[in-house]
Structure formats: structure tokens, C-alpha cells
Computed example of a mutant assay.
Amino acid sequence: MSALTTFSSLSSSQTGLIEPADRALFSDVNVRPFCYRHRLALELPLTLPDIAALNDRLPDGDAFKGWQNGVTQIEDGWRTRPSERLTLADTIAGIETNHSLVVLKHIEQDSVVGPALRNLLQEIFDYSSSRFRKDVVLGECLVFLNSPGRKTAYHFDLEASFLLQIAGTKTVHAWPCGDPQVVAESEVEAYCGAGNLSAAVYKPDLQKLAQTYLLEPGDGVHFPSLGPHWVQNGDTVSISINVNYDLRSLHGSLRPILALNHRLEKLGLRPRRPGASLLSDKAKATAWTVARNAKTLARRVIARRRNGEGYPVWMPEHRIG
């Protein structure tokens, strides 16, 4: 397999993981948060031994694996280290008592769980609005493993994401996207420009604006791009799948423009803000994206080549009708 390939197309007969009654909700993808029902837990049963085996199959490195040990609070950032770091294998084995979070990335590439997840990526894409479909570049899936009672800190993501609960329960607090009192422009600039993944600032007085969802197995919730949220895990181990889509408007435009502007500002220059010049925006986005994509792809290809594999990427099949 070549270093960069796409998965083969999926037939419409392979879809059906989102409950039929909820499929119309997906016309609001990237507009507002919403809850829906899914059948992924029936199609893809995941247990702790399954996740341990998945961890063994994935390449090592930050591109594919991440974990955090210790008790965290809503305001804590992703780089917070509240306790001594365990190995990933020990973290998974002791997840019931070690107050940890584990994330395994790009699992739609996996030989065991990948087929069902690639079906899910295409299915959600197909149910979404034409405006969203035109914006999608590629998709990926992750699995989250959370200890009982653990909080996932307040944050937002650039990706449009879909959380699907497989085992255990979670209480999710999600805010609408696009409200400047919830997410300030400076937070977006810090996230995209400086690469600060903990740029979102929790504002306790705005907690009342959040929508709250209790997720049980078979429930899912959609987080729009830049829509902040935080999660309180239930009293048992939680297993969930996260589906992410990279977008041209954000990953291919806003983020590279703000990232390059950040570099220019550090040199003492005063670059134009996004939207001030279409020509300038396009040139910045192109220059930054080419350099960044080459570096990111090289890192992931190296990780895959250590296992003698290529690096497949899921891209949507644009169907007619």
C-alpha cells in the first residue's frame, strides 16, 4: 500500500448505524449541538480487552496515542499532569481505579474495528447538509476510555465531532457555537495561531447557557466546530467513539491564516486579519498548509512504516442523489 491512499468506496447497503428517526437531525451539523441514538454498540462491541488489543495493534507515538493520569478539573488544560504518569498499558489495565483518560487515534484504519467506523464516517457525511459535505476534507475516529468519575476539561475543537457512547455513562455540557461571550476571538486566535489546545477559558457564570445531555450506551451528541464542552464521567468505566471531520473553512483556511499571522507578529510585523484580503488569505493558507501537511504526514508515515504499513486516509465518497 502506498504511503497515502484512500479507502475504497462504501455501498449504501452498508450504512444504518444512526437510528432512522434521528437522521434528519444531521441537517444541523456544525450549526448546533444535538443528541441522537445510534447502533454502533451493537455493531462494534468494545470491551477493555478489545481496547488493550487495539492499543497493541496501533503504532506508538503521539500521532496515534495519548493519555492523562490523575484527577482533573473543568478548568485544567490538556497538558496538565496531576499525578505521576503511568505507562499506557498500565493505564488501560488499571482504568477502573487510576483516574485516567486514554485516547487512541486514527482507529478507522484498524483492521478489526476500522470497517464499521469507515461505514459510520460515510453515513454521518451522507446525512449532513450539502453545505457541510462540501466543506469536509477528511475524517477520522478515536476511542476514549475514561475512569469512573473523571472530568474531561472544558475545551473546544476545530473539528466537527460526534461522540457515541459504547459503555458506561457520561454527562455532557455543550454550548452553542459562534457566541462571542462564550468563546472570545482571542481564544480562537490562541488555539489556531499559537497552537494552544487549552485556549478555551471556562466561564462559570455562563454554565447556565450550556445544554446538558446524559449519555448512556446507544446515545450520541454532536459538537460543532469551536463549540465548547466539558464532560463528567459516570460511576463506571466509560468507553466512547469520537468521529471527527476536518474542514476546508477551518483547517484549510482559518487555522493556517492565524498560525502564519502569529509567526509574523512574533517578528514584529502587523499582518492583515482573516477576511481583510481574499488574496492575502489564500496565499497564507496555501503556504502554511503545504508546510504543515508535509510535516504531519511525514510523522504519521514514519510511524506506520515502523510497522511495515502505509498511511490510509478516509475521504468522503460524494454520491449523487
Rank of each mutant, 00 (worst) to 15 (best):
P59N: 08
H106D: 08
N119G: 12
V71Q: 09
L117C: 05
A89T: 15
F144Y: 15
G139L: 13
G139F: 13
T80H: 14
T97A: 03
G94A: 09
G61Q: 09
A41Y: 02
V113Y: 08
D60Y: 10
P45F: 06
S128D: 03
E108K: 10
N98I: 04
N146P: 10
V112K: 14
I124K: 03
N69F: 02
L142N: 05
V137Y: 00
A53F: 10
V102R: 02
L48E: 07
P115M: 14
P148E: 09
G114S: 13
L54H: 03
F132I: 05
S129M: 04
V136T: 05
S100R: 04
P49V: 07
S111G: 11
E123N: 05
R79V: 05
T72F: 00
S100D: 04
P82W: 12
A89V: 15
E96T: 08
R131N: 04
D50A: 08
P115C: 14
D62L: 14
T87L: 08
L88Y: 11
R85I: 13
H99M: 08
R81V: 07
L142W: 08
L101A: 06
D56Y: 14
V112S: 13
V136Y: 03
A63R: 13
L42C: 05
V136P: 03
L54C: 03
L58R: 05
L142P: 00
S129Y: 05
R118Y: 14
L104T: 09
I124A: 02
R85S: 13
G66P: 02
D60V: 14
N146H: 15
P82D: 11
L142Q: 02
E140R: 09
H106T: 08
N119T: 12
G77H: 07
D62K: 14
Q68I: 06
I51N: 02
N69G: 04
T87D: 09
D135Q: 01
P148G: 10
L142K: 03
W78D: 00
S130H: 06
A93D: 14
A52S: 11
D60W: 09
N98G: 02
D126F: 07
W78A: 02
W67N: 01
V103F: 02
I95A: 01
W67P: 01
D50E: 07
D62C: 08
L138T: 01
K65G: 10
G94V: 02
I51M: 02
A52Q: 11
Y127P: 00
F144C: 07
P82A: 12
D90H: 08
W78V: 01
V112W: 13
A116C: 11
N55R: 05
P82K: 10
S130T: 07
G61V: 08
A52T: 03
N119C: 15
F64V: 07
L86A: 12
R118N: 15
V102Q: 01
I92S: 01
P115Y: 14
R85K: 15
G66D: 07
R81A: 04
S128K: 02
L142H: 06
E75V: 12
G77W: 09
T91I: 11
K65Q: 15
